[in-house]
Nucleic acid binder design. Sequence first.
DNA 1: TTACAATTTAACCATTTGGTTAAATTTACT
DNA 2: AGTAAATTTAACCAAATGGTTAAATTGTAA
Lengths: 200, 200
Amino acid sequence: MKEEVTNTEEKILAAAEIIFLQDGYSGSRMQDIADLAGINKALLHYYFRSKDKLFEYIFDKKISLMFPKMEELFDENNSFIEILSGFIENYIKLLMANPFLPLFVITTINKSDREDFLEKLPIFLKRRLMEFYQRDLALGKVRKHHPAQLIISVFGMCVFPFMAKPMLKKMSNMNDEQFQEFMKERIPEVQGYIKLILEP
Amino acid sequence: MKEEVTNTEEKILAAAEIIFLQDGYSGSRMQDIADLAGINKALLHYYFRSKDKLFEYIFDKKISLMFPKMEELFDENNSFIEILSGFIENYIKLLMANPFLPLFVITTINKSDREDFLEKLPIFLKRRLMEFYQRDLALGKVRKHHPAQLIISVFGMCVFPFMAKPMLKKMSNMNDEQFQEFMKERIPEVQGYIKLILEP
DNA sequence: TTACAATTTAACCATTTGGTTAAATTTACT
DNA sequence: AGTAAATTTAACCAAATGGTTAAATTGTAA
């Protein structure tokens, strides 16, 4: 059965994604991944030698999702405020489709014994945002702020609700649909904050 | 040796706190806690019957820290903006002294098999903030916003940097002292955002 | 049909881990 | 000194878990 070599491999990866994203590394069991993929443990190890290998494979995929390129935003014609507004919209939509992403990446990176994962962090995102801010500051198009503080704030306002999702749902008596609605409404809300904060 | 019954118990709790906060439930080992407390596993189980009991003990302590009462803030003479500003200062200072607190509480609550912990969430904090917002909105002292969105934003701006601390340190080339400095500077920064967002 | 790769089955191994037990030892208090 | 509680030591258990192995079975392609 050589037909679709990737078929089983894909099933494994899809299953591993779900398990790892929900339970993290130490909370995940290889048996659970095999079960969810509809295969057995022997075959699982036949495809991926070890839990570590499989996990790193998933993590690599996820970290690039967490820090997307978003090249279309970084157009010289865009103002800093427009770039941030675009980022807010794109990023919240991205996270709505991948709600477990932030907690997964951040808990993984926080594990003291896996600091090697830190090496995979990109830095271009923050640097490019800073450059655009400095440009618009010089043009008098934005108010003066500490740009790193502002960027981390925008990031936090987008990301935090997904990490605190169970808390939010409980405290505001929301179900999953209402949470999605809440996050959709959040896009113009946060964009509004940024305008008020930055516009001179 | 009846002298200080609490002495060993306190050593255990202090050790359990450090281990659990850093590694979470499934990442923590009873042996590590015993080692850090300077005792052996037998004695550890002599004081706390099981890992679950010990963990719940720690979690209860921590969740009340995560959602402090801050009664002094909720004074009728304070404006909503003053209340938020006070909250930002108090909360960031609290987290500076307990940097692992947010990730610990949130990851614990997110574990699907421990949803019982959700029951321990308070709701008074959000409700009281909402009441003060509505009052000041009626008085024309604040701009119109979706108050739940605003409150979660303030929360996120305070909490998120601590959860993403290793990422932030890496991306901005900071050491621990510089991170502390960054968070200290963050207090007036976020307070400034709130004023710009809310003042009519 | 043959040959080879994919898959299953099932037993097995070594290690880790939460937890127990019983006996010995130390400590404090009377 | 005697007693009871605190602590240590060390062996032990059972379950969970990552990983291996070998043999059998199934599917595919030549």
